[in-house]
Design a protein around this nucleic acid. Structure first.
Lengths: 128, 128
DNA sequence: CTTGAACCTGACATCGATGTTAGCTTCTAC
DNA sequence: GTAGAAGCTAACATCGATGTCAGGTTCAAG
């Protein structure tokens, strides 16, 4: 399929798909005229990439992870280097820190709301 | 005091202090020569601004909040408009969403780590 | 062959707080 | 009065994924 269809089927913009390719996350054969040609599997691969983005990883990290994941592209599933695992673990720590920060932020904000409104703002659904 | 001392005492860079002024978060008298001159209270104010930034608010939102807290060292604050309270509450909701997203991100990442680090590639063609 | 949709590359814009630099001016201690 | 520290403004850079535009090429259908 070509880029328009892939975009439609994944919900990812064409711009982003080209960007993924530029970052080495996604490959495409080309027609004689230079148009990108994707196999069916590309849909899964893009979905997978989206999941990793949703995990808060950046393209550089995703690039390193992808070869280790059970392939959406038929390639061999290389096992991760200890270094990569370490890197992922530190990513996890980073996310942990962000969560901690946000919890604190929310508490501060609650206090601000309390002060500003003079009324106890009924706490909405706790997301923790 | 002047900007250098304020920066030193708050731990905020001079650049940021000037930025705060530009955003209307902080005011300063000027000497004849144009140098900024801050009162003692500025220290508290900057600390307060920092707290709000730490709460994940942006300068525009902080700008709207500050008048309601202007006399953090004294007098009664102007009471917040219902609109502001509503806005803060929606900020809180935004933070809640971010926390939720991050928790999910962390779970995804945990799975990635698990897969990448040890778990042998799943079913089907197994070369183990 | 022609037309219009789809695609291509490349480049600039965005958002936000802050870093950094450049070129001047002011303040202060001597 | 002078040196040098400290301040001033203005402007550009950053980071990252994505939007968007411009100008040109290819594809597919009539």
């Amino acid at each position: 399929m070509r880029i328009g269809e892939l975009a439609r089927r994944t919900g990812v913009s064409e711009r982003s798909l080209r960007y993924y390719e530029q970052q080495g996350l996604l490959v495409a054969r080309r027609t004689d005229g230079g148009h990108r040609e994707y196999p069916e599997m590309a849909v899964d691969r893009v979905v997978h990439i989206q999941e990793l983005y949703a995990a808060g990883l950046n393209s550089r990290t995703i690039y390193k992870i992808l070869p280790c994941m059970r392939d959406s592209d038929g390639g061999p599933s290389e096992s991760a280097t200890p270094q990569l695992v370490e890197e992922l673990t530190s990513e996890r720590a980073r996310i942990d820190r962000m969560i901690t920060d946000l919890l604190r932020s929310r508490a501060v904000l609650d206090e601000v709301i309390l002060t500003a409104s003079g009324e106890p703002a009924q706490p909405s659904a706790e997301a923790a």
